[in-house]
Design a protein around this nucleic acid. Structure first.
Lengths: 196, 196
DNA sequence: AGAAAACACGAACGTTCGTGCTTTTTTCGC
DNA sequence: GCGAAAAAAGCACGAACGTTCGTGTTTTCT
């Protein structure tokens, strides 16, 4: 279950698989899950297409594994550190800040921003996996907002999400870091909404 | 310059070209500008690949023409109707509401949401065209915000943009129309920011 | 150390991609 | 309605796609 990076106790195959997925997440963040091509991925990792392919059995399985790896990366970088803050408002603040900072984590911008826009109109397991991960994330935001005493937790979670994804999208296209200021200012306003 | 729909005064070739682009915008909204494939587009329009291809000369030209057609559609549906409202706050309200409503216009969700996420990491004329269209749009929002007397027009434009694109992204993935309520509530709060 | 299993490779497949030519059909001004 | 010009189709190409298969080469376990 643990998709740790280069675990010495892992078998050769698991190590390779982890290295493949590491690169795959970055590639998919930039080029999308469709642009994530087996040949290109193999070339970048200097291995054969068929050798790489054997690890997954199909393109779709590779995509699903990549989504899982991205979710794991997100969990480690955003969720877990925020768990040190107590439930409610402090947790919410920590999640928002980590969420904003994690955008640098994927070299091609936010993995979820890229893939959700790509697959929202392509029904199937891949779409379901992306939607599931995002629903879980929005759900967590909503849960913490509820604990913090927000009157409309679902709306609150949506606004938080929209601000950060908007910052990612705008920064990716304009390259202007001022959007992060704007995002933080919007986040501060949301923070001010929290009771207590 | 006018990419009108089925203009009787247009030659056969122009009519065909317009019909192609009409379908191309919808297809690209759903599948992206890369998923917009010449063979598939030709099949849907019941014409030959080569016949369609001849209208553009290259895939990239087709993509650029599609972007232009999408911008035209956006202009007709959002910008022009809002021009009836006077500059400043009323114009801004009209733009926001039209902007939100226009999401239904593209069968595959917002064309700009899909394509900007797809091309933000692929340098070239296509990316430049998408970025240019979005910059123009954000610029117009900012301009109107400035006229309305907003203290930070660029931040205001960003928030407006983020809320609506967030609503599009969320609705596309979850299918829950409640996000539009949330978006409208966020829009109302932005509206309340306007002086006078 | 040797047997068994896991891993990786190269070649080839059928398809689809974008693109170039040549030919046929359609449109349109006289 | 004829003839030039424009538009559409037909056909073929090289490359890249995901995938399969047979065969070596490492790991791993006893």
């Amino acid at each position: 279950m643990a998709t740790a990076t280069r675990d010495a106790s892992a078998s050769k195959g698991e190590q390779t698989r982890a290295a493949i997925l590491e690169r795959a997440v970055d590639l998919a963040s930039a080029e999308g899950l469709e642009g994530l091509t087996i040949g290109r991925l193999a070339a970048e990792l200097r291995m054969s297409k068929s050798g790489l392919f054997a690890h997954f059995g199909s393109k779709q399985e590779l995509q699903l594994a990549t989504i899982e790896a991205a979710a794991e990366r997100f969990r480690v970088a955003v969720i877990e550190p925020a768990l040190e803050a107590p439930d409610g408002a402090p947790r919410l603040r920590a999640l928002g800040e980590r969420y904003l900072e994690h955008l640098d984590l994927y070299s091609g911008g936010c993995f979820w921003g890229a893939t959700s826009a790509e697959y929202d109109d392509r029904p199937g397991p891949v779409r379901d996996a992306v939607a599931g991960a995002l629903d879980a994330w929005l759900g967590e935001l909503e849960r913490q907002a509820r604990i913090a005493g927000v009157e409309q937790p679902e709306r609150f979670a949506f606004e938080l999400y929209a601000v950060i994804m908007g910052a990612n999208a705008r920064y990716r296209l304009s390259g202007d870091p001022k959007v992060f200021e704007y995002a933080r200012s919007a986040l501060a306003r949301l923070d001010a909404e929290l009771p207590e």
